[in-house]
Design a binder for these strands. Structure first.
Lengths: 233, 233
DNA sequence: GGTAGCATATGACAATTGTCACATCTGATA
DNA sequence: TATCAGATGTGACAATTGTCATATGCTACC
């Protein structure tokens, strides 16, 4: 199930890259690598949390089943992102479920070891920095979901996802999510998302291809600004 | 402008209640109380952040101006909540603006003192606990904004706000926000919010009065469940 | 009392989005 | 090749929400 992890590999992960060699060594003895096949669960909403998970490769979707029966994607995590940290800290249950969008590998640190880690002075500062990064991401999610029309929400989501999934900074970004996954991210119906993407394709803002959606960064940004109507609210 | 703060008063604030007496004393020498009159700003989006603010009394609205010209309320903070912590940690600018919804008092801790505080072992754990609480709140906001129709979004928002603004746990909750503020929280137009509240009033789910909106907790919860349609997404 | 300003309505209509039914395309597999 | 499953796409129509105009009610202030 789990395989050994080396100090050198942990150092690749932003969250751990600032740690002292001794702390890193301590971690390698407790962290294990786990493979998660596409569409398998890492954990389910309501499970009591017993470990911290960090995405090493691939992508993990965090989602919540709404009372309405629909499914809302809270966020998608990529290399270096930590899952379930909040639940660990206040000793509760996972507030949402996590599944792999593709074959992925994650690192697992048992709860008691994570709690122990929090007492290491070099680790606490990295935990705090990480939590605040995560909060920035959540703030952005709030803004994405609060932006009026579906087209604007989708534009923001596509920008965020394509940049996070592939941090290379180029003019045309690639988003390889399913239309269903996109619709679950923006809180709209799949048909609506399909229609907007088709419109973008026709107007040249984005290009549909087998490798995903190729998006022109500046064209999308302009699209967001153009919606300027007189402000009253 | 600022007035002295006592250890005893700091102890009332959850964030500081677990600290050692010496740390508390240290804080009283650096924290100042500031009054913020209704609709005045605590800080504006883009300001470089120079302090940590904690709401002592009243309520502070954090909001962001969208490209479309509209205004999205990220969240509303009440007694004990900390403003701008994230911006402090990654040394950036405030990502949103903050204004007082009513005459309020806040505690101000200068940036350099906050950074120093982070090195106290009894403080770091309380900072981490606080950040994770804040993340839970943000996760809830994501869920609120991602819940399909405006009526459901409004129901969740009203539940959250009425419980946070008045933690006494009773069957009927009170929400004293303006219709405009509510609409900015749910990401919809004021007219839409007014129509939904009027509908609630007629059906007895909520009662409009001069002291605010009186909401029947279980009736609202039932309203959320009823929307169960077959799940496909 | 009058008036100015603001929050709160309400109606009519337009725009967006959801819903449902069905067609097409693609990739995997027997 | 044939077939199947799943993703993508399209049309017609219904429901929700936005937009705009306008009206009412309330409070502060002169």
């Amino acid at each position: 199930m789990g395989s050994m992890v080396l100090s050198k590999e942990l150092n690749q992960i932003p969250r751990f890259s600032g740690l002292k060699p001794t702390t890193l060594k301590w971690l390698t003895e407790r962290i294990h690598r786990i493979k998660v096949a596409k569409s398998n669960f890492v954990f389910s909403e309501g499970d009591s949390c017993d470990a911290l998970f960090i995405v090493e490769s691939g992508s993990i979707k965090i989602f919540k089943s709404l009372e309405s029966g629909r499914e809302l994607t809270i966020d998608i995590f990529y290399h270096g992102d930590a899952l379930g940290e909040v639940a660990l800290i206040d000793e509760g249950e996972y507030p949402a479920s996590a599944t792999a969008l593709e074959d992925s590998t994650i690192l697992k640190l048992p709860k008691e070891d994570y709690i122990k880690l929090l007492t290491f002075s070099d680790a606490t500062s990295s935990v705090i920095r990480d939590l605040s990064l995560r909060m920035r991401a959540l703030n952005r999610r709030v803004r994405e979901l609060g932006s009026g029309e579906v087209e604007q929400r989708l534009a923001l989501v596509v920008l965020t996802i394509s940049q996070r999934s592939n941090p290379k900074n180029t003019e045309t970004l690639v988003c390889d999510l399913t239309r269903q996954e996109l619709s679950s991210l923006v809180g709209a119906r799949m048909e609506t998302v399909i229609r907007i993407i088709s419109k973008w394709h026709k107007s040249g803002i984005a290009i549909k291809s087998s490798s995903g959606l190729h998006v022109n960064k500046t064209a999308i940004a302009k699209l967001l600004e153009n919606k300027t109507k007189d402000l009253d609210l």
